[in-house]
């Protein structure tokens, strides 16, 4: 507990200091609220939670978790298939990398045209954002199996399936988790983008509404909520990782 506090207090102090400076500057230079609201204004607005804020948060959270689960699953399945069939990997891996040069934000309007404004195009946007880090991390982890352990397994006559289940997969778990952690934070971003483009609820939709009303304070509330959601997703996966990879020697 003590060492935890030791790590936490310096960034905490930095954040508090930053907020204080922000607060001071806005009142000192009389900055208009619609240009840059003070932290106290934002806090007041959050507490008021007007415009059905929490319903929007709930909608975004549901969309994020749903899309993230599907995206991660697809990423893992792609990694698995490409790993088990080396020819497919050779053929498709470059395409996979190439696909990431298409900005999701440019694809999203197309998806709206093809699939309308329902749940499906939004899930596809999040999936597109999530599957890639998971697939690449999983493929990398599966490829880097310890050669000494691999040699051992083959010498004692382990089959392909056993080598995968008993060696390759557990060996790759830490890198799979680092991919999933990235996907977890991306998934919130994906959900917001999807909601920007066409939705009737969610934080993304809420932001669009507030933008047209020049409610900068509420925009900041939305940003804050997005940050908290991202941290929440990340923390959840980090906890899962800690449980799954609990054999790993502690560093330092």
């Amino acid at each position: 507990m003590r060492s935890w506090w030791k790590n936490v207090w310096p960034p905490l102090v930095a954040v508090i200091f930053f907020l204080l400076v922000w607060q001071l500057l806005t009142s000192l230079f009389h900055i208009e609220q619609w240009i840059l609201p003070a932290p106290s204004d934002i806090a007041r607005e959050t507490a008021a939670a007007s415009g059905g804020l929490w319903e929007h948060v709930w909608a975004t959270l549901k969309l994020t978790v749903f899309g993230f689960a599907i995206g991660t699953a697809i990423g893992l399945i792609i990694a698995l298939i490409l790993h088990l069939i080396p020819f497919l990997k050779q053929a498709l891996y470059p395409l996979l990398i190439l696909s990431q040069n298409i900005p999701t934000i440019a694809l999203a309007p197309l998806l709206m045209i093809w699939f309308g404004f329902g749940l499906l195009p939004k899930i596809i946007v999040i999936t597109l954002v999530c599957f890639f880090p998971v697939a690449v991390a999983a493929l990398g982890g599966l490829k880097q199996t310890d050669p000494v352990m691999m040699n051992y397994m083959r010498m004692i006559g382990a089959g392909k399936g056993q080598i995968f289940a008993k060696l390759e997969l557990p060996h790759a778990l830490p890198s799979i988790f680092s991919g999933i952690k990235i996907a977890a934070t991306y998934s919130v971003m994906g959900a917001i983008i999807a909601e920007w483009l066409g939705a009737d609820k969610g934080i993304g939709y809420y932001m669009m509404l507030q933008k047209s009303g020049y409610r900068t304070d509420r925009m900041f509330v939305a940003i804050m909520i997005i940050v908290v959601l991202s941290l929440l997703m990340f923390g959840l996966i980090a906890l899962l990782e800690k449980w799954f990879v609990r054999w790993k020697p502690k560093q330092g």
Partner: peptide, 18 residues
């Protein structure tokens, strides 16, 4: 044919997650 010997390698090659 594989699977007919028991084997002890140069490095212990114990699996860290077991």
């Amino acid at each position: 044919q594989q699977g007919h010997i028991s084997y002890m390698p140069q490095q212990p090659a114990l699996f860290p997650w077991r």
